[in-house]
Amino acid sequence: MAIETTRARPALRALLAAVLLGGAAQAAAQPATPAIEGVWKIATPTTTLKPVAGAVPFTAEGRKAYEANRKLRAQNKIDDYDITLSRCSNPGVPRLALSPMRFKIWYRQGVVTFDYEWNRALRQINVGVPPQPDLLGQGLVPTATGKSKGHWEGDTLVSVMEGASDRTLIDDLVPHGYDLKVTERYRLLDADTLEDRITIEDPAYFTHPWEAVVTYKRQPDAIFPEDVCLDRITAHKPAFPG
């Protein structure tokens, strides 16, 4: 899954060479073929992101919102707290880490793309694309997956996500606010095991940062069937297939 990333236009070669010699070229720099590329699936399916130690450290506000979600679930008022289950809305970060189906990781042009089988969801981590003028105002609106900025620490991909909508959940129940910050560290435990070490921060909802770990097993490469969550909802089936 390698790609040739740089082939300077002849007219620009001299300039590019000068920039490279100056050590300033960052745009196209990336490891040749990061080993985290491939097809993956969660090792132990779960709907809950469990802290590595202890319980989720809710603030009073966070606890209140969490209990409200529990009550809504008991009342089967799903759309009032979880629009992923009710509408197939993008689960966002970090909940996408719990996706029960396969996903692909591509690393192209300084961008790590998570290409999910579930509902053809998409999430990207920007590792090397320089900031561009926001001519369409795309950065003005919070989104389910926020903005993820990444860098490599050796073979570990470190991603920091901010700017998420408060319409998503941490998992199937835990809420968060606009100040959510999710730091992820992706690394291979072995050739076929990928670890995502997740740190959750949101001072309004959690008294201190807390950590969770999700692992994935490598899967054979394959063309994914076209998964359309809304077709399941229309057929009165759950958003996430059992």
Binding site: D79, R87, N90, N119, L122, T143, A144, R167
Partner: peptide, 19 residues
């Protein structure tokens, strides 16, 4: 357009399912 390789999010389900 490699400089546009970071996509905007497309999340039509949030609106389609809005009661």
């Amino acid at each position: 357009i490699p400089h546009q390789a970071v996509f905007a999010e497309y999340n039509c389900e949030e609106q389609v399912g809005d009661p």
